[in-house]
Design a protein around this nucleic acid. Structure first.
Length: 554
RNA sequence: GGUGCUAUCGUCUAGUGGCCUAGGACAACGGCCUCUCACGCCGUAAACCCCGGUUCGAGUCCGGGUAGCACUACCA
């Protein structure tokens, strides 16, 4: 039977969406798109005590930012990519589709019906054991498990008369509904990634399916009922669910839904970069990289978690990076657009073993995608960073160290960024590369001075100053592209034609003069090509900086 | 403790019995380019967990060890 592909991402709103969860969402999305199916988003909020306000919005906004589209269920109503850092999310949530509601807390009545079905068919029973009683039992008996061996010693509807049970329920006694697992049976789970997994039912316990305390089912029941009702064809989720997959198979069987049971695929876990174990929020804090897509302000515990977006990551880089963590394409390709991923994705190319989170590679991906963005786009992204930096400097120094601050047009900024973008991994890092264009050096890098500022340098700079003063404003910026060899171009600057012959004639040495000049302009021996710098700075500012340096360094 | 999953360079991985003298990418290292720092380009180093078995032939199949991870809640 060819079934329409319908997959779901079903997070719990218990905080920020973990990067591992993002990858799960991505794989689901790629699978759905590839098969022309539906990607649903369902919120699994059956644990009312762990609900964190804002988490739902956060999840939807994160997926929206990354371009992981939702066809059905809950999704962000309008994209909001222009949030300032730290600003609370203001997204609207909309619900689309005919299989709703898509929040489990809004599906109580539906679950009642199915709990009753299991009770009536004898696949489940009511248990009155309190958490305290269970704790006592666990303390008393090592490895205690509520199952076929022990349930007849407990307080439940199997050991009590119907009248007793009814009396207790009428009295308002809290109870749970437990799944009655039949012993001595090998349960087979067919996993698309791992193949056949067999577990004996003896090791399964009688899982709680429903708790009367908050009138909500537990994950297991809600999950199976919803996946069935929502006609989910494939369940793609983290490996941590593999041990409970047999229970889920048993549930499908108990409901009589085995013929439409979804196919399972359990994804390998994302591991800590160092040592072992699952990647956690704390690893991010400890090792200094984000574990969440977006910055998150947890209203419940007051913590703030850094995000990829706020750290300067491009969504396409995060997607590419995540896609390759646990999956590999059919060839040696590393750079993938979302469309290419959709084409090439395949569950049987998902690896079985956990993947250590390699943050360095993530940086490399961002570098690659940054180069692909236009200078204008980058200028737009960098503008807020620049404004902030400049205003702090201005208030801090109280002095007018900022040259042409107000004159930085988008065009000019884009031009500057074009000179340096290939040396940064992140947009905010641009500042370290371009700061000298906006702020004249007030001090000079010691190491550079030691190596590049020689005894003769002041004399050289005096002469260079005199020479440069003779250059007309027009010639100052003049340059032309000339062919050099096969499809290689070189920019020939007019200033080069003026300065180089002078150096040659005086036999000063290009390196020593140019580096001293560079120190005057930049404050250190770094930066783009010198004539690009003089071009951006302009004649007046260039000469001013040389004079300043001469004063300070002579 | 029990159950399950997993096991190739430091890391992500390719590899589905001969194409493997084990390939690619990140990181590292070296060189080239060059007025500087980068980028880029070129190159180097770097791995089949162990022990058996099957086979003419094993990274690849099987068994056993070992190790790592996950699960073992009225959490998901």
């Amino acid at each position: 039977m060819e079934r329409r592909v319908r997959v779901r991402f079903a997070p719990s709103p218990t905080g920020a969406l973990h990067i591992g969860g993002v990858r799960t969402a991505l794989y689901n999305y790629l699978f759905a798109r590839q098969h022309g199916g539906d990607m649903l988003l369902r919120i699994e909020d059956t644990d009312s005590t762990r609900f964190v306000p804002g988490a739902e919005e956060y999840i939807l906004e994160a997926l929206d930012w990354l371009g992981i589209g939702i066809d059905e269920g809950l999704r962000a109503k309008k994209p909001s990519n222009n949030l300032k850092q730290g600003e609370a999310s203001n997204i609207q949530i909309e619900s689309v589709g005919s299989h709703g509601p898509y929040r489990q807390s809004e599906r109580r009545e539906i679950y009642h019906q199915y709990v009753k079905q299991l009770l009536d068919s004898g696949h489940a029973y009511i248990a009155f054991d309190t958490p305290e009683e269970l704790d006592a039992k666990r303390a008393e008996i090592p490895n205690f498990q509520y199952d076929a061996r022990t349930r007849m010693q407990m307080r439940n509807s199997l050991t009590m008369s119907a009248e007793e049970v009814k009396a207790l329920m009428d009295k308002g006694e809290k109870y749970v509904v437990r799944f009655k697992v039949e012993p001595d049976e090998d349960v087979h789970v067919h996993d698309l990634i791992r193949g056949e997994v067999v577990i004996n039912s003896n090791i399964l316990d009688d899982k709680v399916l429903y708790k009367s305390a908050d009138d909500l089912p537990t994950y297991h029941l809600a999950n199976i009922v919803d996946d069935h009702l929502m006609e989910i064809s494939h369940v793609i989720r983290g490996e941590e669910w593999l041990p409970s997959a047999p229970l889920h198979v048993l549930l499908y069987r108990a409901f009589g839904w085995e013929d439409t049971m979804p196919q399972f695929a359990h994804l390998p876990l994302l591991l800590k970069p160092d040592g072992n174990g699952k990647l956690s929020k704390r690893d991010g804090d400890r090792l200094g990289f984000p574990v969440f897509p977006l910055e998150f302000h947890n209203q419940k515990d007051g913590t703030v978690s850094s995000g990829y977006r706020e750290s300067g990551y491009l969504p396409e880089a995060v997607i590419n990076f995540l896609a390759l963590l646990g999956w590999h394409g059919s060839g040696d390709q590393e750079m993938y657009t979302m469309d290419e991923l959709i084409k090439d994705f395949s569950l049987d190319r998902v690896s079985k073993s956990g993947a250590k989170f390699d943050y360095e590679k993530g940086k490399w991906f961002n570098h690659q995608y940054l180069q692909l963005r236009s200078n204008e786009e980058l200028a737009e992204m960098f503008r807020p960073v620049l404004d902030e930096k400049l205003s702090t400097i201005q208030t801090k120094t109280q002095s007018q160290t900022i040259s042409n601050k107000d004159a930085v047009s988008n065009h000019q900024l884009a031009k500057i960024i074009g000179l340096v973008k290939d040396r940064v991994n992140f947009v905010p890092e641009l500042w370290e590369q371009v700061n000298f264009f906006f702020v004249a050096p007030t001090e000079y890098d010691e190491k550079s001075l030691k190596k590049r500022w020689k005894e003769d340098s002041p004399k050289h700079m005096q002469e260079l100053l005199a020479l440069l003063e003779t250059v007309s404003e027009e010639d100052w910026h003049k340059n032309e592209e000339i062919e050099k060899g096969e499809n290689e171009k070189i920019v020939q600057w007019e200033l080069d034609k003026v300065v180089m012959p002078w150096i040659a004639e005086k036999e000063y040495g290009v390196g020593i003069v140019m580096n001293a000049f560079r120190i005057c302009l930049v404050g250190a021996a770094r930066g783009p090509h010198i004539w690009n710098i003089t071009d951006i700075l302009g004649k007046e500012e260039t000469l001013r900086r040389v004079r300043t340096a001469l004063e300070k360094l002579s």
